[in-house]
Every structure is written in structure tokens, then in C-alpha cells.
Simulated scan of single mutants.
Amino acid sequence: MSASILPSDPQLTRMPLTRMQGRAELGFVHVDGTDRLARLYQRAPLRVLFPDPPQDEPPHAALVTTSGGLAGGDVLELSVHAGPAAGAVLVGSAAEKVYRSTGPDTCIDVSLTVDAGAALEYLPQETILFDGARLRRTTRIAAAAGARLLAGEILVFGRTARGERLTHGLIREAWEIRQDGRLIWADALHLQDDLRAVLDAAAGFAGAVAAASMVVLAADPIALRDQARALHADYPGRFGAGLINGVLVARWLDGDAQRLRAAFGETWKHVRHAALGRPARLPRLWDI
């Protein structure tokens, strides 16, 4: 007679957990005056949908995590290549949830390649970190001279709508931008174990429940910086924008996640118009 495995049975703790390894690869080309999808590979739970873009927009690709969230040990890999003069917009279909981990890290690797004359937007929605989540995310950008890029991320520290506060876990958020093979900007945020101490510290996150970053490669970064600063003249949260080796880097901290999202989106609309010549609006999915 076989023995049943009850929740308290030590056999249960030794059973390997099922981990997900999702991957998506996209390539865009500009042919006969039109931007087109040239390559698509996808493996669950990372899927890509292609909503019809407005007539004055390049192709839109919507990223979907079909599992409904990520747990410890899960891996997502995204690779996007915008060929010479090609345009594309990548947008998250919904907020990404990273659940509490029993030990392993959740890993997200993003690789964006933008060739000469290309213009790429990478606009995920918020990443919501449940208490105890362990996230390692790396975004690597390889751009040619003359390429234009608008990319960003938003982190929410806990399920704020339920009053949850992020107290422990791991946050590793790293960025790297290379232009024609030369490293021009790199940055990494690393918080581990007692997260509350840093999130509450006046010299840290000062009690913020959300943080965001935006990076821009464009022809006139000084004008874009000044425009971004002017948009936040009356912003009650914390905002800063500066230039490093021609890269515009903008950052937000706020005690209100919805207010940060609104400020981030408003900035995105104006910057995309000034930097990429696209209409000052957000994709329909993101603007819901």
C-alpha cells in the first residue's frame, strides 16, 4: 500500500519545485518604407501579442506572462533587435508580480539592440514585489551611433493596495548601455535581507513605496532633460534628471505608486514626441 504525502510529510519538502523558463526573441526591420516584424520566437510563460497600432505608429508588441506572476527560481529572457531605420514599441500588457520566494531568485534578463537610425521604445508596466520576493533583473542595451531609445522600469515595494510593506528579500536591478561597443552608462541597485531599513532611511528611499527609472538616447538630450525637469516643477514626489555620456537618466521616488505611474507616463508621452517624433500618447494597453 502506497503512503500518502501530507503537507507535513518531509518528502514534500524534498520534492523539486517546477521552475519556469520563458523566452521571447523579436526582430524588426524597415523595408519599403514600412516597419515590420522579421523574427519571432517565444516560449511560455513569456508570450508576445501584436495589437494593431495607430496608423501613425510603428509595430506594437505586448509582453504577456501567462503564468500570472513569477516565483523564486523562475527565469524570463527577452531579446529585441531593431534593425537599421526600424521602429517598434514594446509594452507590458499588465503589471508583473514577483511572489515571495522560499530561497531561489527570480531572474529577468532583457537585451535590447538598436541599430543605426532605428527607434525603439521599451515600456513595461510596474513590477510589484511581494514581501519576501527575490528579484534579479538586468537590462543590457547595445546601440549604434544615431540610434534612438526610450526605456524604463517601475518598481513597487509591496502590495500597496493591501497595505503590505516590503520588509525582506532581494532587489537587484542593473542597467548597462553600450554605444558602438563602448560602455557609456552602467548602474546597479542592490538591496538584500533587511530591505525596510534602506527603504525607510532618509538617506535611502525615504519611505517611498515606488521607484522608477527612464533612460533616453536621442539627438538633443539637453533639451529633453530640461523638458523633463519642467514637467516636474510641482511634482510632490522626488524626481531628478541628468546626463551621463549623452544618456538622459531620469529617476522617481514616491510614497504614492499611482502618482508616480502618472508622472512617469506623462513624461514618457512628451519625451517620445520630442525624441522620436511620435505622437504624445501612451500605448492603449499601458494607458488603461
Rank of each mutant, 00 (worst) to 15 (best):
T167K: 13
A228D: 01
R19M: 12
L224D: 04
R134K: 14
R14Y: 10
E164I: 09
P10L: 06
Y99A: 10
G83P: 07
A62F: 07
P84V: 12
E266V: 03
A151C: 10
G237Q: 02
L12M: 08
A201Q: 11
R162P: 00
Y122M: 03
G237A: 06
G207F: 00
V89S: 06
A145L: 01
P124M: 05
W185D: 13
P53F: 09
E77V: 15
P51K: 07
M20W: 15
Q42F: 06
L191G: 11
D287W: 07
D35T: 03
W175H: 11
T18W: 12
A230C: 00
A82H: 08
A208K: 03
D52N: 13
V80D: 07
E121P: 08
L282D: 04
I108D: 00
L191F: 04
G132H: 10
W185T: 09
R19N: 08
A94D: 15
G33H: 07
S101E: 11
D131P: 00
A95L: 01
I5Q: 10
A143S: 02
L123K: 08
R36P: 00
G255Y: 03
S8V: 13
A95D: 13
D193T: 13
V209P: 04
P236N: 08
A88Q: 00
V31K: 06
A144W: 10
P54R: 01
D32L: 10
A280F: 07
P59M: 11
L155G: 08
Y99D: 02
R261T: 14
D109N: 12
A88I: 03
R225N: 03
F205P: 00
F157T: 09
R238Y: 14
L199S: 09
G181H: 08
G73Y: 01
L63T: 04
T18A: 13
A263C: 05
D193I: 01
P16Q: 09
D9Y: 06
Q227P: 01
G73L: 04
E173D: 15
N245Q: 14
G87V: 13
L253G: 00
E266D: 15
G33C: 09
A202G: 15
A88K: 01
I288D: 06
V114Y: 05
A174C: 05
P124R: 03
G103P: 02
G69F: 04
G146F: 02
I184E: 10
A143Y: 01
L135C: 02
Q192D: 15
R43E: 13
I184M: 04
L26I: 07
Q125H: 08
S213H: 06
Y41F: 14
I177H: 06
A206M: 00
E57C: 10
A133T: 09
V64H: 11
P59T: 05
D131L: 00
L195P: 07
L46I: 11
L189N: 09
G163P: 02
G33N: 08
T160E: 11
P16V: 04
V110G: 03
L70A: 06
A174I: 07
R14C: 11
T102M: 14
R182D: 13
P54N: 05
V271G: 13
V98N: 09
